[in-house]
Design a protein around this nucleic acid. Structure first.
Lengths: 210, 210
DNA sequence: TAGATTGTTAATCGATTAACAATC
DNA sequence: TAGATTGTTAATCGATTAACAATC
């Protein structure tokens, strides 16, 4: 394996991908780091440094070919592979994720939904049945589950996460307001802590009026 | 105004608040930076540095008083003030936010919902009526709106954000997959780009299996 | 008082920016 | 070829960690 790439760089890659996607849609054929830097409001230096962590995608005197670079960043992010995703907790947030079409364009495929509420078990969301938690283990063992999105309350999140790891799930998209403390270091956890985000917003509001 | 505090520090404050809240619930009276560092898996140095950006909340030889520190961080984050919040776009994501009770405990109060869909306008969510977009301007001018949460598709997000700023809204919680480019520098924007988060997750999965 | 632990300064580490030779 | 722009090295900047005197 090559040298480790810092999370600071990784966090910026999806943003590059987003901007290149927009340029692509606008039919832009090529772009220089200078032009892209003005568009994205980052330094051209940073763009070139970031991209060169993964390879030389540009050409001196020309810049970067937009369709090519878009594609390459997609591969770096693993979007050329399909990721099977299950959602545990079919409340409003779980539904929001389930119904979010855009994910499919990025190679994520919803394969199952789970909940504890007997009133909704058996119902379908976009053609996918809501299953009971009892079915979780069997499902994980018999299907390739790449990512589990956790949208249940925080009280049960850590426990379920541990089970999932035992069943071989190696990536968790965690919306519960708790930090998962998993035994296996190789499990990938991506947190979306909405209340943390809102508190940050609150801080910045408060700061501006002091 | 005092010296600017880096966003790196701000990002960590809600996490401290969360852990202290849990300690508080468990009835823990005091904690040292060393113990907290083991719990949170950060260095004790960082904890002390972070807190001392805002003041000396501890006591030598004793550590930090949990209820007091919890309270102080709450104040730093502006959680002692009420923030009126409106949601624009009442799809699944808008509903998820609207129904998310925890926010109320943090001092955020949902005051209005807006959507363009005539089929849902007039319906109520937790006792709050869904209004048409035509009512947005009047509502903003006649009510104190602190935060607007944008959950509509990205195509209209930037436009609506501009209108909101004109109407005096100075903080935006942006869930649309686009970077808002607002004229007024003092407007606070907090982005929640779920697809960026998912791509980051995808990268880290891919990396582990290379 | 002695021990513990903070607040804070200094040292280190890593990330960002600047500069420029390489090269298309 | 001349001009443009990359890839990459070096310089700078900022954030994290270590160390320790202050002090409860």
């Amino acid at each position: 394996m090559n040298k480790e790439i810092s999370q600071a760089v990784i966090r910026r890659m999806p943003r590059y991908y987003r901007y290149l996607g927009e340029l692509l849609e606008s039919g832009v054929e090529r772009i220089s780091s200078g032009d892209l830097s003005r568009l994205m409001k980052v330094t051209a230096s940073q763009i070139r440094q970031d991209l060169n962590n993964f390879g030389g995608f540009g050409q001196q005197g020309y810049g970067y070919n937009v369709p090519y670079l878009y594609d390459e960043i997609g591969k770096i992010l693993g979007l050329n592979q399909t990721h099977n995703i299950i959602i545990i907790g079919v409340g409003n947030l779980g539904l929001a994720i389930a119904n979010y079409m855009k994910f499919e364009k990025l190679g994520f495929k919803l394969v199952a939904l789970f909940d504890i509420n007997p009133n909704i078990i058996g119902q379908e969301v976009r053609g996918i049945k809501i299953r009971s938690m009892e079915e979780l283990e069997d499902f994980c063992r018999n299907n390739a589950v790449d990512i589990a999105a956790l949208t249940m309350p925080k009280a049960t999140a850590d426990n379920i996460a541990h089970h999932l790891v035992e069943m071989g799930v190696h990536a968790i998209w965690n919306f519960a307001h708790v930090d998962l403390d998993l035994p296996d270091e190789s499990v990938v956890v991506e947190n979306v802590h909405l209340s943390d985000s809102l508190m940050q917003l609150s801080y910045n509001i408060t700061k501006n009026f002091k």
